[in-house]
Write a protein that binds this DNA or RNA. Sequence first.
DNA 1: CTGTATCCTAAAAGATACTG
DNA 2: CAGTATCTTTTAGGATACAG
Lengths: 116, 116
Amino acid sequence: MAKKLDYEYCKAAPMLEWLGNKWALVVLMKISENGPVRFNELYRTIPSVSEKVLSQVLRQLTTDGIIRRELFPDVPPRTEYSVTEFGKTLLPHVEALLNWGRENFEQIIKNRQKHY
Amino acid sequence: MAKKLDYEYCKAAPMLEWLGNKWALVVLMKISENGPVRFNELYRTIPSVSEKVLSQVLRQLTTDGIIRRELFPDVPPRTEYSVTEFGKTLLPHVEALLNWGRENFEQIIKNRQKHY
DNA sequence: CTGTATCCTAAAAGATACTG
DNA sequence: CAGTATCTTTTAGGATACAG
């Protein structure tokens, strides 16, 4: 990803950055669905993601203020991730998009087959 | 992109495929905004995309039935891309997401700075 | 438990030249 | 004009080990 998105859309670029991340939306939805959730909990519920990528996604979403990271001074350490109020304003749009994708799954597959 | 998205979200995966493409959404919106549009027209209105990537995105969106490609038997050749009826059912959700991104641009930047 | 660091591979993006 | 082919660079993603 070297080149920049052009001016007209650049204001949406910060969002598009993690939208382009393969796992970001899935991670976000999992946190939203399951409420406050711990690192390993996420790691287990998304079996095919690696620790590294999961941690990257979590950091990015946290930095952008979409999710919140709470660290409890327990032993062993415990952290919980949850969606912030800011993140909640985004959720409906993400859900709408994912729902469209699910609802039109068959149609898309059919369209692809037409082009062999 | 080696690993698969997990079952719960795999139905949305075909859509996520091109959602993950850096340029797909921009190309889609440009076509939607400008009506039927030709290849070089797009190439010029999205200055920072390469011909190759543009052509890839166009083919992918065409294959999935989101946009339509019409070839006119003119000399020199002329093609026009436009959004299909199917694609139009997707547009509102993409627009909503892009709008959110634009509206919250400042907030995201501010959030990032807090984390230095 | 919750991550980070390192190293490696696969995939996407980009530049450029060329064809129908 | 509307792309495709080729080649190189860049970036994302993954495996694994290990640190606080």
